[in-house]
């Protein structure tokens, strides 16, 4: 056993093989990697349009990573939010790139989710026994919309401020509970520091955790029900 094979690639370097074996003897990762990645045969009926769920998942990971990087410089206070975002864009090396990937990635994620949902709907893949997974998918779509909405306020620009005024005003049209929903969303009567802190917490911790949990369920059901796609 002096070489390792990962699909088409063979590794012969003795040290690398030894190091990998030491881990594999304890965790058994090779078996999982072979089953799920390298030796996995994708069903022949899959096509270009089947890839959009996986692309959305990739974009979610990209959003998490770039979001973590942005948090290193972003300051969630009314007086500092805009200047810290300006600093990321103008002074921090490659800050424009990291934030650009985060901003464009959020729009791109909504597009890929839209294509994914259209493909599932048109192909009728939501039918039994996959109805509940469709429901989870719709929840994931709503999570993404909420992530976009809460993230929009964080740079604290005129555009994001007034978009949040309108966005939090909208639910107040609901009879009886509307006014309370607006009050809770804003953390008070008006948009201010409380709203920014709230949206920041929802954007960087609460929704990402919920979304990651729902994605796990979504993918587990895909494996269980056998909608095997090129993830």
């Amino acid at each position: 056993m002096s070489s390792l094979r990962f699909g088409p690639v063979e590794i012969k370097n003795r040290l690398a093989v030894k190091a990998f074996k030491a881990i594999d003897d304890r965790f058994g990762v090779k078996e999982i990697l072979d089953d799920e990645v390298f030796e996995k045969i994708a069903p022949s009926h899959l096509n270009f349009w089947s890839c959009f769920g996986g692309i959305s998942f990739f974009l979610f990971i990209s959003q998490v990573v770039t979001g973590m990087l942005l948090m290193i410089y972003y300051q969630p206070s009314v007086s500092q939010a805009h200047s810290s975002v300006a600093m990321i864009m103008n002074e921090v090396p490659f800050g424009w790139l990291i934030r650009g990937i985060h901003v464009w990635g959020s729009s791109l994620m909504l597009i890929t989710i839209g294509v994914h949902m259209a493909k599932i709907y048109i192909s009728g893949i939501y039918k039994a026994p996959r109805e509940l997974n469709w429901v989870i998918g719709v929840c994931l779509f709503l999570m993404t919309l909420n992530l976009s909405f809460t993230g929009y306020l964080l740079p604290w620009t005129q555009l994001s401020y007034w978009a949040t005024v309108v966005g939090t005003e909208t639910p107040s049209a609901i009879p009886v509970v509307g006014e309370y929903i607006r009050f809770v969303l804003r953390g008070g009567e008006e948009i201010g520091q409380m709203t920014l802190t709230r949206f920041f917490a929802i954007h960087v911790i609460i929704l990402p955790f919920v979304t990651a949990g729902l994605i796990t369920l979504h993918l587990m059901q895909i494996r269980r029900q056998g909608i095997s796609g090129p993830l």
Partner: peptide
Amino acid sequence: LALFSLISVIGVVYPVGLFLWPHRKK
């Protein structure tokens, strides 16, 4: 494949490294 993998790794490590390095101005 090895070359493109190397370029990809550098393309991530270099900008992220510079991004994280505290810069003197601020």
